[in-house]
Design a protein around this nucleic acid. Structure first.
Length: 906
RNA sequence: GCGCGCUUAGCUCAGGGGUAGAGCACAUCCUUCACACGGAUGGGGUCGUAGGUUCAAAUCCUACAGCGCGCACCA
């Protein structure tokens, strides 16, 4: 069954005196280096094997590993490693993302703190050099951390979103979409981040409930002094930009004012009262001040009514309104207080109410975004229908499936994507403007597409020939505008035929968080259809979100986010991986508990010690078991259970039930292999045992453990490799990580009888231990048992049973007659009697039996009630009724027995 | 406001029309020659609430509540 081992491994095994507890750190580093050395992770695009591919969700290049990454990447690693074992050609393509805003902000902060300079002090070129320096210094931190975790990525294909080849793709895509008329430039209301000083996409705005105030004020009606319109607002600081007051046309309270004018207090101006359906009559006073420059809804109303747009803020969120010196230059939240105070002074402020509303925050800078009119580049999404259909019809499968609904909803409500960012770090927009034209229009900020004649703008991957006469657009693209090309732009250089792309695209699985369905997943699908001829992946597995035990999201500021590196130091990478997988449910969130990781470590230790036991038992060569049918039931049983485990895991992998796989691996090793099999076969390994017994047991151990380690390998790759080699389960220079899973089962005959016997012995052992414990005899080794009515085969197993129970002896005697009241248990092998020899406290025993009898009477009453119910007996399936009758009989005989025992004590 | 998900033992979670499950934690015992990162035994739950379907509901259905997450122009 097993190959002969080379003598080198044998010698290693003999020489090594294993420490009592597994020490993962050195082992893990050793094997990772060995895998890299053996080029185990490198994908061969020319391979004839079936392809399996995943592209990593690229972490931020300057980021550090957090538990979310760990979960995400361990899942991918498990999939990749399992696919290798299944004989597929695996590409797990790694890389990092330049993360425009996050990275630039980091470098700017460092610049400010260390040198007191801004990026503008340095200038674009010099600043970008700094960012590259930063990237080069810190960019591989997270990569090193992923390696520590054991990630089996093909590092020879590592990509970065600002690699030259990748950047070429980004520009190309921009130019192509522009040519198609899907990219346009325009002045629109965008989400403006006053800290990052850039526009953001809708997805980068996080709506957050805020405790704020609702200000009630009045605007005087111009032609009716003394009369005024009451208005409510949360943002009095935008009052200077008010150009109208709107009411609902159906609102009778205000109909008389429509078309008349009210007085804006500062800077003083007369503004019209207009009617618009958007206004909710129920809310506040029913009258809404209209500030088209600073509110999306107001902007739309402004467009409908042809209103003026008065911008009263600077890009960094300060008031820009020289006509109102009190407020001019104030920061926007200072200005809010000041504006309210001014209204109060003027007698125009009626009241202020506490109010909770949703405010959009900048995802990166964590400050409220400012709706702002500005000139930006926008994209109308391509291939929307294909992308929506692909998920709806199952060409791309989401797991859990419910996310498909979220996706569909978003796809149905697509808004144009603002893709320009006023940053320097990123892919610069590949657009040039004729210098003289720009001059004439006083800078690009006011440059609308309509202002540009054909010859004034150049959109291309290369600068125009007479570059000195042109000025390049200052903006860069949204980071996600490069990320959405990831599945194919990582696999091919633009314009070149790529063997990698042909072999590995579309990818098989994508593993990511549901929080980036819109940011990334949906956009990749659209880009895949538009630029790579089809869907980018077939399955998307959405991970759970990791929370702390209180259910809060992990965050730096809360300090509730454990450092995965610390966890690996304490428990090993395998321990972290396994512990996390055991608590990873399919759907909902994960409550992270370090105790779970500790269990992962304990499990590794248990496994290690099982193997250590094997080594201490003998250095015999693994023996080919010639006739499995000659084996004792425990041996057959454990092999059959391993076969079953292999089958079950296969099915679980099909359905991405990662938690279940971890659970089954744990259960098999601990409960079946160690607690049952190893305990049952210890007699075979004693000095007194025959060579034959010893060999069959070591042979079975090796056969089972060798395969088990293979099955475990995707989850705990390092220890699986270590033990496989130490135990001699892989040949010299071979790795267990990519060894093909065997097709043939260990047991190829009907093992039901043997398994039933093994189960009977294990269960009997449990009952008898239980009986000992009831009489407080757990630690006694001299307790003897007599079995009545045992099956023939049991005679050969009494020694094992005795060992499992910790008994002084077990005899089979159908004719035994014990005194009444002798403790006994009904077991699968017959009635077993435990003679007490008068060592037990009679009073306590009597009380215990009394309680037990009460309980059983209650059960009998319940069961009899059920069977006395005609509708149950008539209409329930006969098997169920029979089962119930059987139960009743069991209870009744138990009652008889207990009553006799009680009687025996009298 | 709409949608989705969750609610099972002290904790973290499986399960799913026919006698409530696991791991941890807890209690008692055991330092027995693989493992105290261990072994044995045990206590502990009317499966969120209220109705309905059914011979039978923790499981299916309907409401409701609590929590979480999306989406939404209510200032």
């Amino acid at each position: 069954m097993l190959d002969k081992r080379g003598s080198a491994w044998h010698a290693l095994r003999l020489m090594s005196e294993l420490p009592k507890a597994y020490e993962p750190q050195a082992v893990e580093a050793k094997w990772y280096a060995a895998w890299l050395d053996g080029k185990c992770f490198e994908a061969d695009a020319a391979s004839a094997k079936e392809a399996y591919s995943i592209v990593i969700p690229p972490p931020n290049v300057t980021g550090i590993l957090h538990l979310g990454h760990v979960l995400n990447n361990v899942l991918q690693d498990i999939l990749a490693r399992r696919a290798r074992q299944e004989g597929r050609e695996v590409l797990w393509l790694p890389g990092t993302d330049h993360a425009g805003i996050a990275t630039q902000a980091k470098v700017e902060r460092e610049l400010r703190e260390k040198e007191g300079k801004t990026r503008r002090d340095l200038g674009r070129e010099a600043f970008l050099e700094r960012v590259w320096d930063f990237k080069n210094a810190h960019g591989d931190i997270i990569i090193r951390q992923l390696k520590r975790l054991g990630c089996s990525c093909d590092w020879s294909r590592e990509r970065f979103t600002m690699d030259e080849a990748y950047s070429n793709w980004v520009s190309h895509v921009f130019v192509e979409l522009f040519k198609k008329g899907l990219i346009y430039r325009g002045k629109r209301m965008v989400n403006w981040c006053p800290v990052s000083l850039t526009a953001l996409s809708d997805e980068e705005v996080v709506m957050t409930p805020q405790r704020s105030k609702l200000y009630f004020m009045r605007y005087e009606v111009v032609d009716a002094p003394g009369e005024s319109l009451e208005i409510s607002t949360t943002r009095p600081e935008t009052l200077m930009g008010d150009v109208a007051v709107a009411v609902n046309p159906k609102d009778k309270r205000f109909s008389k004012y429509i078309g008349r004018r009210v007085r804006r207090p500062f800077p003083e101006a007369e503004i019209p009262v207009i009617a618009d359906d958007h206004v909710d009559m129920e809310f506040g006073t029913g009258a809404l001040k209209i500030t088209p420059a600073h509110d999306k809804a107001d902007f739309e109303i402004g467009v409908r009514h042809g209103l003026e747009i008065i911008d009263v803020f600077t890009p960094d969120g300060h008031v820009d309104c020289p006509g109102c010196p009190d407020l001019h230059g104030l920061e926007r939240f200072e200005a809010r207080k000041k504006a309210a105070a001014k209204l109060e002074e003027m007698g125009l402020l009626l009241k202020v109410e506490e109010y909770e509303n949703n405010v959009g925050f900048s995802e990166r800078a964590h400050v409220p975004v400012e709706p702002r009119i500005s000139m930006q580049w926008f994209l109308k999404y391509p291939c929307v229908k294909e992308a929506a259909d692909a998920v709806a019809n199952g060409d791309i499968r989401f797991r859990p499936e419910r996310w498909a609904k979220t996706y569909a909803h978003w796809m149905d409500n697509l808004q144009d994507w603002c893709i320009s960012r006023q940053l320097w770090w990123g892919h610069r927009i590949p657009v040039w403007y004729r210098a003289e034209k720009l001059e004439a229009l006083k800078g690009a900020e006011s440059l609308d597409m309509s202002d540009l004649a054909q010859g004034d703008i150049h959109v291309g991957t290369e600068p125009p020939a007479d570059a000195e006469n042109w000025v390049r657009d200052e903006d860069v693209m949204d980071t996600w505008f490069s990320s959405w090309l990831w599945p194919f732009a990582t696999m091919s250089d633009l314009g070149e035929d790529s063997a990698t792309l042909r072999k590995f695209y579309p990818t098989t699985d994508l593993v990511t968080g549901p929080d980036i369905i819109f940011f990334w997943v949906a956009r990749m699908i659209m880009a895949g259809f538009e630029f790579a001829g089809g869907l980018p992946f077939r399955n998307v597995y959405f991970t759970a979100i990791i929370r702390d035990l209180q259910g809060r999201k992990m965050s730096k500021s809360l300090g509730n986010s454990p450092d995965p590196i610390d966890l690996m130091d304490k428990y090993g990478a395998d321990g972290l991986r396994f512990g996390l997988m055991r608590i990873a449910p399919v759907g909902s969130d994960i409550r992270f508990d370090e105790a779970q990781i500790e269990e992962g470590r304990n499990f590794a230790n248990k496994l290690y010690n099982a193997c250590r036991f094997r080594q201490m038992a003998g250095s015999d060569q693994c023996r080919v078991i010639s006739d499995q049918k000659e084996l004792p039931p425990y041996h057959t049983d454990i092999m059959a259970k391993l076969d079953e485990l292999g089958t079950d895991l296969g099915a679980a992998y099909e359905e991405y039930r990662f938690g279940e796989i971890a659970h089954r691996l744990y259960e098999f090793l601990w409960n079946e292999f160690c607690d049952k099999f190893l305990e049952a076969v210890k007699l075979d390994l004693r000095e007194s045992a025959t060579a034959d017994a010893r060999e069959r047991t070591l042979g079975t151990f090796d056969a089972v453990m060798a395969r088990y380690l293979q099955l475990l390998s995707p989850y705990m790759p390092h220890i699986a490799e270590e033990l496989s080699v130490r135990m001699g389960y892989v040949g010299d220079g071979e790795f267990v990580m990519d060894k093909p899973l065997p097709d043939a089962p260990l047991i190829d005959f009907d093992a039901a009888d043997a398994q039933a016997r093994a189960a009977a012995v294990y269960e009997t052992a449990g009952r008898l231990r239980n009986l000992k414990a009831e009489y407080k005899l757990s630690t006694r080794k001299d307790v003897r048992f007599v079995v009545k009515g045992a099956p023939d085969w049991l005679a050969g197993e009494t020694a094992v049973l005795s060992l499992l129970v910790g008994a002084g002896g077990i005899v089979l005697d159908d004719a035994v007659s014990a005194p009444k009241g002798t403790p006994a248990a009904l077991t699968p092998v017959g009635e077993v009697i435990m003679p007490l020899e008068g060592l037990v406290d009679v009073e306590a025993e009597r009380a215990r039996l009394g309680k037990e009898i009460e309980k059983i009477r209650a059960e009998i009453a319940k069961s009899e009630g059920k069977l006395g119910n005609a509708s149950f007996v008539d209409r329930a399936p006969s098997a169920v009724v029979a089962q119930e009758r059987e139960r009743l009989t069991e209870w009744q005989s138990k009652l008889t027995q207990l009553s006799e025992m009680l009687g025996g004590l009298e």
